[in-house]
Every structure is written in structure tokens, then in C-alpha cells.
Design a binder for these strands. Structure first.
Lengths: 345, 345
DNA sequence: CGACGCGATGCTAACGTTACCATGCGGACA
DNA sequence: TGTCCGCATGGTAACGTTAGCATCGCGTCG
């Protein structure tokens, strides 16, 4: 009965451990551990022997055990408003590039623009003991702030600036950008300027600031911010189109539309094409964010460029520096913006 | 000297543990553990006492320790080709929705379309002992397959179908979709059909299959797949525009362009607008994926709809079922596609 | 009235790794 | 020749949790 002697079965019940490697290489487990983390502290011959044992066995270190003991998970948790927003994607690309170099991994979740959902996600993430946390925007529930204060880990908020970050913040002034864009529109002689913005001004600080900046520019030019000329829509091409339809119904003499995002602006542009409204002759359009489509559409879209990719890199870099024990020079980093005049205005 | 008695300092060195909660509630640690995981097994009074202790202390469970002991990390690792592709984003949205409901978290990284990079990421992720892995596409290095076989965890590949998945696969036939789209173009009477595809056919199976499907349709109609009418470009609006420029230079009689993605197709459309080419009268254009812009642009884009969001949900659901110990009915799930005829063809 | 079952709770020993301290050995120096 | 230093390696005890069994008390049934 050969079935009884299946002790050394090739069906090893679990992935191999350091102990297996140690036995195979004829050293102690701690030496294996050192080969992995501080190879220069191990003699060349020993190191080679251990490495070939690792190779032979196919050993994969268990970072969970390492995290538990070392109190360092190597994980950065990020809560973003919506993965489907291309704007967020570029920030993520910048972040992951920097994090990967540092050997850190990204735990990601999507709050759907809801601060309550964000709080729930932060709570769930903290249980995983991330080394740091990335949040989008600077508007968070008191519960979120409290948890993060108690967690005592680096936190970076990104996108909107604030003087009172939870810990660190990197972004740009959405207020100033929207004001500058609107001022440019006014300077070009437009007088009946409509506003088509993403809805959710009460919970999305980015949108709130952009709206406020737009209104400030109008008031600065003594034009008044007429609520009748402001509509809120979904952040989509369809939303932009619907927004223009509403505005034109309310004010046929409309001669410009300020949009809080390029997507919305392109939606407005498409609706103009459907209605046969000449852009910019009859109607000027401006977007924000300078996504790729802005430079490619016809006519090319006037917009404001935001350094999204750079923002992701900076945010990640700030976290990495803090994790390395270094002090970060400034807790508030303003990356600025740039108005890009093209053909729709 | 009051500084000496800082034993019970409020600067507790670490987040509280179950032991602290247990002491506060006057029970053993295992009871606390049970309140968190199997509350129905604890008497009502005891449970209430423990819960209020948790609340009072602000206890946050340590999932790292739980993972180590229970051999379940609650983490799903996903490697995607590029976060900046809106196509991927919808898949992610579907996935995270399902995963969140199941209490699972998503570890995310970006391979930049490189199988070697994917292999490195899979290796790094496996050290975190994810409960399951999600991969994009079905083309992977031998090293990746080997590691995943050894890891013995559920794996789902998504996007492209294959008869020999590593474990499970959910997707649609890019070959059939591209063939169907091209056949529709042929059926509408177009004869000089160009191809503008994303570059990287050798490593991106999705693109390879779409190219092959397109060629198959041409050959099926005895039209031949002329390489002179095929150009490869970046997956961007700019790429589409450049592609059209190249094609027209090579074949002025071009009367249709098949594109492997909506983004490229819209780029082609923009270039037509710049050149004053009437669409579809002078030139027909087709895309693939049915992103939002396809239905909104002017004229609206003929394309093929892929159930991306649904694919993310299904992939996650299959993983969840496997993690729950249930058998998954089919290892290969074909979600199909739908040709959507609009105005550009 | 004793045995038995069951619900509620607790104890002990891991999970796989690393922090901390210990040990042994060879060479430099007085 | 003895002392001391530094390098390479090892042993032990956690990190915070849960699996698996043990225990205790109470009610039920023959």
C-alpha cells in the first residue's frame, strides 16, 4: 500500500517558508531574511547559497508576515472619487510610477463622489495598516479626519488646495483657474456668458471652487453672476449638450459658455454642431483640465491646463519622503495652472 | 517631577489591540474576535458590551494579523495595461462594486502593455498573498503562467477569449467583433477600406485579434487585406488623425476607415473635419468599444459595443464564487458584442 | 436523579516573519 | 600572549490575530 507514505508529497500544502529555504541552504532562517533585506550583511558565499536555494524551491516571501512583524505594510491606500474619470487616471499613473520604484503597492477604491462612502472606505483601509493614505480633494467628513488623525500616518490630499490640510496637500487653485479662464472670456468681449458645471457643488470642492472662481470673475467685471445662466449637469458629453440646450432656452442671446470640464465643453461643442451654431463666431466655449481631446477637436478647445500627472508624482513623492523619515519641505504645494487659448474662444 | 510617571501616557505607542478591548469589556480576546466575525455566536449582552468597548477605545482590527493567521488576505490583485484607458476604467468600476460588497479590496498596478512588466508585478503581488488575481488579456509570459499555477489561487483573465485560460476567462471575441464591423462596412458598399489600429499587435492580444478579424472579413469578401492600407498608431485622438493622413497619402481613393478603437476613430473624424472631408459621404468611419463619445459626436460614430462594465462585474463575481468555495459553472464566459450602426457609416 | 446535549466562553498554540541580543571566531594591537 | 573589536551568523521572543479544542453551566429527557 504505497498510499500511506505520502508524507513528502509534492502537493505541499502551502507555499514554502523561509524555514524551507534555510534548511535547503544549510543556514538559519534569520540569514535567509537578511539575504532578502540586507544582502550586504551576509558573506558572498552564503548569500549565493541562499539565493540558489530560493530559486530551487521557488520561494516567495510572505509580505503579510513581514508587515505584521515590521509594522510596515508597504501599502498606500488611495480613495478616489471615480475611476472612470480620465482626469483621475493620469494622477494615478503618476502615483503608481513613483510608488512602484519605491516598492510600494497601491490599494484603490472609489467613493463615487460621496464623503460618507469615502469615510467608510478609509475605515476599511485603515484596518489594513497602510503606510500612508491618498485622498482626493480637501472636503472630508469629521469622522474621516478623526480616524486619520488617530492613525498617525502620512496623508496627502490632492487636487484642491487648502490652508488646513489633514497633513499634506498638493494641487492647484481651482478658484483662480476658473476665474482666469472666465476673465479671458470677458476680455475677448463676450457679455452673455453661461455656466455649465458638474453637479454636486456641495460635496465636490473642485466643482465648488470652479463655480466660485467663475462668479468672482463676473462680479469683478461688474457683470453679475446670474443664476439663470448657470446650469448643473452630469460630467459627460451628454451633460454638456443638455446644458447648452437649457441655457439657450433661457437666454437666446447667449454668446459664450464656461464649462467646468473639457468633457462638458466638448458636449457643448457637439450640440453646437448639431444646431448649426458657429463656434466661436456665434458662441465661445471654454473647458477646464486640458485633456487630450481639447487640443484635437475641431475647432480646438480653449481650456486651462492642470498638471495632473505631475500632481500624482508629487503626491507619491511626498509620501515616500515622509516614509523614509525625511521632513517634507512644504505641507502645501501649489502646482499652478495655465490658461491655453485655442480656437473656441 | 511629574514627567517620570508617564506610564499611562495618552500617547499610546500603537493602535489598540483586541486585548485592550477585551480588558475594557471584561471578556477574553477570542470573544472580541467572535463579536467581529461571528456575532451570532455571542450572547446579546456580551456582544453589546464588547461593541461599546470597541467604540470607546476606537479599536480598529488589524487585518494583517488576521490575514496571517487565517490565510485569507481579502485582497484581489489586478494588473491592467494602462490606468489612463477609459476602457479599463469601466471594467474596474464593475469590479470594485462587486468586490466592495464582498468586503474585498483591490490592489492595482499598471503594466504599461508590457508582458515582462506584468510578470514582475505578478511576482510582487503574489508575495502579498492575494486571494485571487485579475489579469487583462490572455497573453502572458511563461513565467507568469508558472507563478500563477504554483500559487493555486483563482485567476481570471478578461477581455480576450481563449480556450486555454490559466484558470477562468471572461470576455468577448475581438476577432468576431472586428470581422462583423468590417463586414458591415463592406455591405454598405465601401471598397477602399483602410485600417487604423493601435500599435503593439505583437503583445496586445486585443489589438491582434481585431486586426485579424478585420483582415478575415476583407478576405471573406475577396477584397484582400492590403498592408498598404493598414497603419498603426498610438491609442489617442492624435494617433487617429495621423493615421488618416498616412492612409490618404497612400490611397487618395480611400472611402472608409476601420479603427480598432473609438478614440482613434474620433481622431480620424476630427482630421476629416480639418480637411473638409464629408463623413460619411466621402469617407465612412467605424470605431470599436462604444464609449460615450461615440453616441455624442457629430456625426455619431458607428461602432461595436462591448460590455465592459458587465465584464468587470462578472470577473469579480466569478472570483467571489470561487473564494466562497462554490464551483464556477463555466471557465470561459463569452459576453458577446453588438454592432451599433450610427451616422459615420 | 444522572447522563447528555448545547450554548457561551476561554485557553493554547500557531500563522511566517523580523527585532533584539547573543555567540563564536579571527585578526590587530599593546 | 592576552585583550578587544568587528564581522558573520544564530537563537529567542514577539507582532495581533484565529483554529481547534476544552470547559462550564444549565436545561432536558429517560
Amino acid at each position: 500500500m504505497p498510499a500511506t507514505q505520502e508524507q513528502p508529497s509534492d502537493e505541499q500544502r502551502s507555499p514554502s517558508r523561509m524555514e524551507d529555504v534555510a534548511r535547503c541552504a544549510g543556514v538559519s532562517v534569520i540569514t535567509v531574511s537578511r539575504v532578502l533585506r540586507e544582502p550586504e550583511k551576509v558573506a558572498d558565499v552564503t548569500r549565493a547559497r541562499v539565493l540558489s536555494a530560493i530559486e530551487a524551491i521557488g520561494y516567495v516571501p510572505n509580505l503579510i508576515a513581514r508587515s505584521l512583524k515590521s509594522r510596515r505594510s508597504g501599502i498606500i491606500a488611495a480613495v478616489i472619487p471615480s475611476v472612470t474619470h480620465s482626469i483621475v487616471a493620469e494622477v494615478l499613473r503618476g502615483m503608481t510610477e513613483v510608488l512602484n520604484e519605491a516598492g510600494l503597492h497601491l490599494l484603490l477604491a472609489d467613493s463615487g463622489f460621496s464623503p460618507q462612502e469615502e469615510e467608510a472606505l478609509v475605515a476599511a483601509f485603515l484596518a489594513r495598516r497602510p503606510d500612508a493614505i491618498y485622498l482626493t480633494g480637501t472636503t472630508h467628513t469629521p469622522g474621516t479626519r478623526k480616524m486619520l488623525d488617530a492613525a498617525r500616518i502620512p496623508v496627502v490630499e490632492a487636487g484642491t488646495l487648502t490652508d488646513t490640510p489633514i497633513d499634506m496637500v498638493v494641487g492647484y487653485s481651482n478658484f483662480a483657474a476658473a476665474r482666469a479662464m472666465t476673465e479671458a472670456l470677458i476680455a475677448s468681449g463676450r457679455r452673455n456668458i453661461g455656466y455649465v458645471g458638474q453637479s454636486g457643488r456641495d460635496v465636490i470642492d473642485r466643482v465648488r471652487d470652479r463655480h466660485a472662481g467663475h462668479c468672482a470673475a463676473l462680479r469683478g467685471a461688474r457683470m453679475g453672476a446670474d443664476e439663470r445662466l448657470q446650469v448643473e449637469v452630469d460630467l459627460s458629453y451628454r451633460g454638456g449638450a443638455a446644458g447648452l440646450a437649457q441655457l439657450l432656452a433661457r437666454e437666446p442671446a447667449l454668446d459664450a459658455v464656461f464649462c467646468t470640464s473639457d468633457i462638458i465643453a466638448i458636449g457643448v461643442l457637439f450640440e453646437c454642431q448639431r444646431r448649426g451654431l458657429a463656434v466661436p463666431a456665434r458662441l465661445a466655449i471654454t473647458g477646464m483640465d486640458d485633456q487630450e481631446i481639447a487640443s484635437q477637436c475641431v475647432p480646438a478647445l480653449t481650456t486651462v491646463r492642470m498638471p495632473r500627472y505631475e500632481m500624482g508624482r508629487r503626491a507619491a513623492a511626498m509620501l515616500c519622503r515622509r516614509l523614509a523619515g525625511e521632513k517634507v519641505d512644504a505641507a502645501v504645494v501649489d502646482l499652478g495652472f495655465e490658461v491655453v487659448m485655442r480656437q473656441t474662444s
